[in-house]
């Protein structure tokens, strides 16, 4: 008798049916009223199918290059697997893609299970996902747009440096910078109905890619190893705690070489909102 079910039980029942998928159709008659032209199992299926489809569409919007690389079918399989172990627990859909790269990494076969040349390429999806997630984070995070403009005066006293939330370094083992650039261009043309050639898969190539935001626009930039060492140091240290001699050592530079490189790079990096100069703002 349906009256036996209270509000909590009804909601638990429907949620389990939705999360479980279309094979989950127990106790339909007890919980659902037969109304309208559709049979109740088909009514329920609208919610069950819509749940997956809606979240897949949102993941596709956040990871377009990954969809292109994997193909829609494989991408869907990964998303369904990801959501089954990481169901959305946040009110914002922007949180949906958080952890997807790590999920892809966790599902990658062990190197000994596949030939060496295949094993190396299996990291491409997780690294592409890292890059696309970095773009989504940078788009919404606190940026430098409201900070004072950087002028030459800012450098007359060597400032403490830090990273804005919008600057995210992604180290990759593949030519993902070119792949992302070409896939963005390909997808834009395809969306307009123009002819376009899909990019070749990425090749093995170590890259350090800085994702950052300048004047509300997200940008990708390949940086050199020493720059990635500096950015990593800024990511993991408080501005006043950066161990610069250690950074120079990691970058295989002398301290004076690092200083001269920083002198050339920092004004441009600060002007492009890649880093923050922590100077007393008037």
């Amino acid at each position: 008798m349906s009256r036996a079910y209270n509000l909590v039980e009804r909601q638990q029942w429907l949620m389990q049916r939705i999360l479980g998928g279309v094979q989950q159709n127990q106790y339909l008659e007890e919980n659902m009223a037969a109304t309208g032209p559709l049979a109740i199992e088909h009514q329920l299926a609208i919610y069950q199918q819509g749940f997956r489809l809606r979240l897949i569409e949102c993941m596709k919007a956040e990871f377009p290059s990954l969809v292109l690389f994997l193909g829609e079918e494989v991408f869907h399989l990964f998303v369904v697997g990801f959501l089954s172990v990481n169901p959305s627990k946040h009110y914002s859909l922007y949180e949906l893609g958080d952890g997807f790269a790590e999920f892809l990494a966790s599902t990658r076969p062990q190197p000994q299970q596949v030939p060496k040349e295949v094993a190396e390429k299996l990291k491409i999806p997780e690294q592409l996902a890292l890059l696309e997630r970095a773009r989504a984070v940078s788009l919404r995070a606190e940026g430098c747009e409201h900070r004072n403009k950087v002028t030459v005066d800012s450098f007359m006293i060597w400032p403490l440096l830090s990273l804005p939330e919008t600057s995210i370094l992604v180290d990759t083992d593949f030519s993902l910078f070119d792949y992302m650039r070409k896939s963005d261009s390909y997808l834009a043309k395809r969306d307009k109905g123009e002819e376009a050639i899909a990019p070749q898969p990425p090749s093995l190539q170590k890259e350090h890619i800085l994702v950052y935001r300048n004047h509300f626009r997200v940008a990708f930039m390949r940086v050199e190893k020493w720059q990635s060492d500096v950015i990593n140091a800024l990511s993991y240290s408080e501005p006043c705690d950066v161990n610069w001699p250690a950074v120079a050592q990691r970058a295989e530079l002398t301290e004076s070489q690092l200083l001269s490189k920083l002198t050339l790079w920092l004004p441009k990096a600060a002007a492009a909102s890649q880093i923050i100069l922590n100077i007393a703002e008037a």
Partner: peptide
Amino acid sequence: SVQLSTPLSAHLEKAPSMFLEQQ
């Protein structure tokens, strides 16, 4: 095909990205 009620993906912000070579 399966039709989607309450489509939400178009609400997600998609802005064209810039790709810049290193400075």
